[in-house]
Simulated scan of single mutants.
Amino acid sequence: MNIEELIDQLNAINPNDESLYEVDSIIDLLHKLDIGEAKRAIGPLFKIFERLNEGHYDGVLWSIIHGIEGFNEYEDDLIQSVNRCPNEYNLLMINRILNSGKQSYKSTDYLLLLKELHTDNNLSDFLKEEINGYIDRHSQP
């Protein structure tokens, strides 16, 4: 299967129904491709999180996180996803980066990004609480 077909499959997934379970096999196929080609799927993987209903949990979502992290150099797409549609999974990935000791990427300071998001009145209380926890954890000396 080529990258275009895999991206089409990712774009067709409704993460709120059974089609979410197709992700594991797609990620396996992506990791068999040339890394340059496979990285084209990072954006569509983030968009799965963006289509997810808030509070929906399924273990396969961790497969997406680990799949994206396995590509390395995903931070541009992560920041774009957070700016487009902050959700518990792309924010969790920001937290994981901060846990690793990395504070910024290019011109984006991760903690400042979280603080700016925390003031967004359009975010749910659930997301604001998640963000507040990350801010508290990483603002400590």
Rank of each mutant, 00 (worst) to 15 (best):
L111P: 04
E50Q: 07
I131K: 08
N53G: 11
I27P: 02
L112R: 03
I65D: 03
H66N: 15
G59P: 15
H138D: 05
S25L: 12
L6W: 03
E5L: 15
E4L: 06
I7S: 02
E73S: 15
E37S: 06
L52W: 09
S104R: 11
N121H: 12
D136H: 03
I13Q: 00
D8Y: 00
S81K: 00
E69I: 08
E130G: 06
I35D: 07
I79T: 10
K32D: 15
I68G: 08
L92T: 08
K32R: 13
L6H: 00
E37D: 14
I26T: 00
Y89F: 14
N132G: 12
P15T: 10
L92F: 05
E50V: 00
I26G: 09
V82P: 06
V60R: 09
H56G: 15
E22W: 01
K115R: 08
D8P: 07
E130D: 15
H66I: 15
R137P: 02
I68K: 06
L78F: 10
I97K: 05
E116M: 14
E88N: 00
K39R: 13
G59M: 13
E69H: 10
G101V: 00
L29V: 14
M93W: 01
E75Y: 06
S104T: 12
I65S: 02
D58P: 02
E18W: 11
